[in-house]
């Protein structure tokens, strides 16, 4: 059997815009070269300002998603407030590092808009990503992960620009994802894009090549 990271396939990308963030995923679930389902959403909402994607081994996607749902609910009850993107990133990171010597085969991508507070009335859009054992990076531009990561890097590096408005950010992240997954045998089969702004989240389902 090949690498667990390539067993099911799938990719996620997140991008920063002007007072907005976007996160997108493909919908394929496979068993190596065989496509099994085209409704495998790898992106989950924590709340209406914070989303994260879990590309990697599908069984671990379910386990980690449930684990994080539990931890976020506990946080919500104890703290009586919503978790911030930064705190959530560290929660995911420590969850991954807990399994340092037998890791979850997942490379999470987080995208969120922090709530404005009195101390920080204009918080910056936030994205982050981790390796399988929780080493965090917080890019200023975009974060990619999954089997099409190298293609996503190339496409995003060529298409992304600073301070995109929500509509332009949607176009940029969609084009980046679609053109990357179209060159990846293990990703594709449709896509979902979320664009998060302070007043709403716009979620669109993209039709794409089904081969």
């Amino acid at each position: 059997m090949g690498s667990p990271m390539e067993y099911n396939g799938g990719s996620v990308v997140a991008m920063v815009g002007k007072d907005c963030v976007a996160i997108a995923t493909d919908l394929r679930l496979g068993q190596q070269s065989i496509g099994v389902a085209y409704n495998f959403d790898k992106v989950v909402a924590v709340n209406d300002k914070l989303y994260y994607g879990l590309p990697g081994l599908a069984t671990d996607v379910y386990s980690l998603r449930e684990h994080l749902r539990f931890r976020v609910n506990m946080y919500r009850m104890k703290e009586e407030r919503e978790i911030t993107p930064k705190t959530f990133t560290h929660l995911v990171s420590s969850s991954l590092y807990e399994k340092r010597f037998g890791p979850w085969f997942i490379e999470p991508v987080v995208a969120g808009l922090p709530q404005p507070t009195e101390l920080d009335p204009h918080p910056k859009p936030f994205i982050s990503t981790m390796d399988t054992i929780g080493c965090i990076t917080t890019p200023k531009d975009f974060a990619v992960a999954g089997t099409a990561a190298d293609k996503l890097y190339g496409a995003a590096e060529g298409l992304w620009e600073p301070d995109l408005e929500p509509d332009d950010l949607f176009e940029t992240i969609s084009q980046t994802l679609l053109n990357a997954v179209d060159r990846d045998c293990l990703s594709g089969w449709g896509a979902i894009v979320h664009v998060i702004t302070q007043d709403k989240v716009v979620t669109r389902r993209l039709r794409s090549r089904m081969d």
């Binding site: 190298d150 190339g154 590096e157 060529g158 053109n179």
Partner: peptide
């Protein structure tokens, strides 16, 4: 793998 998807698009 980085350049070809960009070229497909452009």
């Amino acid at each position: 793998s980085l350049i070809q998807p960009f070229l497909d698009n452009q």
